[in-house]
Design a protein around this nucleic acid. Structure first.
Lengths: 165, 165
DNA sequence: AGCAGAAGTTTGGTATATATAACTTTATAA
DNA sequence: TTATAAAGTTATATATACCAAACTTCTGCT
């Protein structure tokens, strides 16, 4: 029934921000939304009206702003994508914290749910598989500076896997 | 000197498409650009003018369309990002071919060069590290259906690494 | 040469998302 | 309780990027 109503990236960002604010202050406020999105207060109202028309937020002029159930579902999914992508960028690819956040903020709109689900599984696999793990990520970090593998070292490294099992 | 002139995602897409067409037909043509971007012919002209003003393409009305050196540099970088991201999605995350392409097409604008560089290293590490490799990716595929690790199997799996070195 | 059709452009209109500035409503505090 | 500030809204304007349809230029064919 609502499969085609794809939200713009901006509207998705609004929902995500509203969810964050709601989690802190119970309700979101126009001023705070503007601040978080780095835009002017006046630009927010029109977008709130759009979200309201789509029944994603409860909105009355000068009133409280809260997510509807449907809005919360979407916002949660976006937030989930953000968290997962950031985790991958930060913990695996070794991108610095703030930058991971900034890039995740853009990537979350490009990746759909099934793709993020696979990323979740992949990260989970890295964390659980004896052939991977945090020591393996450390090897990756070293690999990044060395570029070449030292096979003697590899032998040593593989042996570490055995100790895990 | 040109650090702040960030292109919009759309302009980046135009450059990428023009590079592709140029590689096939030496020059790009308005009609082909429209076709590749799934838009109308009339929409292309204005964008070509913008790219021309930014000195990213050589453009005269009714004339040939080619990338300038600067335009080619940017287009190549975008194309490189696309290829790398697609490779990760397809070969590692096991996203189907066409979908990998479509998502890469959107992600390429969200990830900057340093981040893609790290992704390159990561994929290269997966391909080269004895603890990873294609057999490890196969283990990931199995992990996706099973969700849980079988430690007996893990022992077997780790032994495979040893045979590599 | 000249005509038809293809390719390219222009024009006018739409949708999205923003800014700025003036205005209204709500909240605060003397 | 009423002035004032803060928060929110409205109106106008801008930038991006698209479409549809009319128009222009170019190309190939006879």
């Amino acid at each position: 029934m609502d499969g085609k109503n794809k939200l713009s990236e901006n509207l998705e960002d609004y929902l995500e921000v509203i969810l964050n604010l709601q989690n802190i202050h119970k309700v979101a406020r126009s001023k705070e939304i503007a601040k978080k999105l780095n835009i002017q207060r006046g630009s927010v109202t029109g977008m709130l009206k759009k979200l309201s028309k789509k029944k994603l937020i409860n909105y009355e002029p000068y009133g409280f702003i809260t997510l509807t159930k449907k809005g919360e579902e979407i916002a949660s999914e976006i937030q989930r994508r953000h968290t997962i992508i950031k985790d991958f960028l930060f913990r695996v690819l070794q991108i610095e914290d703030k930058k991971s956040d900034a890039i995740a903020c853009r990537m979350e709109h490009a990746m759909d749910k099934p793709t993020v689900d696979m990323l979740v599984k992949f990260i989970s696999f890295i964390d659980k598989c004896p052939r991977a793990g945090t020591d393996w990520i450390q090897e990756f970090i070293d690999f990044c500076s060395d570029t070449e593998l030292d096979m003697k070292r590899c032998k040593n490294c593989v042996n570490k896997c055995l100790t895990k099992i």
